[in-house]
């Protein structure tokens, strides 16, 4: 009901402050994608620990880069869902294999992860009605 309906009310413009989480998520995703794709030693260590070196690292790096692009495109809500998916994967990695402190970084990595996760969730939540297929039901 509704999605085929030309009269479905168009959601108003998203609030301006959502640019904050949107830029944070996109910026960090672009940055970590760059690190992974340029053989950053810390990432090599992580992906070795996960048993995914090097293909997994390139794959995740590519996905992260793609997320950054989508986050900046008009499909930002989709990008936000994808980003939170990547972060969910990272959470699984830290919870099951890596622990909170990686390469003696004092938890910086996990902190960044939490920041991006939160940002993408905020963005996805506040613009959920724009999601294709499921938007009308949320």
């Amino acid at each position: 009901m509704g999605s085929a309906d030309p009269a479905t009310p168009k959601h108003g413009p998203p609030p301006l402050w959502l640019w904050g989480p949107r830029l944070i998520a996109a910026g960090v995703m672009a940055f970590v994608a760059y690190l992974k794709l340029t053989d950053n030693p810390a990432d090599i260590a992580i992906f070795t620990q996960l048993g995914m070196e090097p293909h997994g690292r390139y794959l995740v790096g590519a996905i992260e880069g793609f997320c950054a692009l989508v986050l900046l495109s008009p499909y930002a809500p989709v990008g936000a869902v994808m980003t939170s998916g990547v972060m969910l994967g990272a959470i699984i990695a830290h919870a099951t294999k890596l622990g909170l402190i990686v390469n003696g970084d004092g938890g910086k990595h996990v902190g960044l992860l939490a920041l991006v996760f939160l940002s993408s969730l905020l963005l996805a939540f506040f613009r959920r009605r724009e999601l294709p297929l499921i938007g009308d039901t949320l």
Partner: peptide, 17 residues
């Protein structure tokens, strides 16, 4: 994903969502 290969978490994540 935990016991065989971490790659399988590419499936786990969408399933969780």
């Amino acid at each position: 994903g935990n016991y065989l290969t971490f790659y399988l978490h590419f499936v786990t994540v969408p399933l969780i969502m």
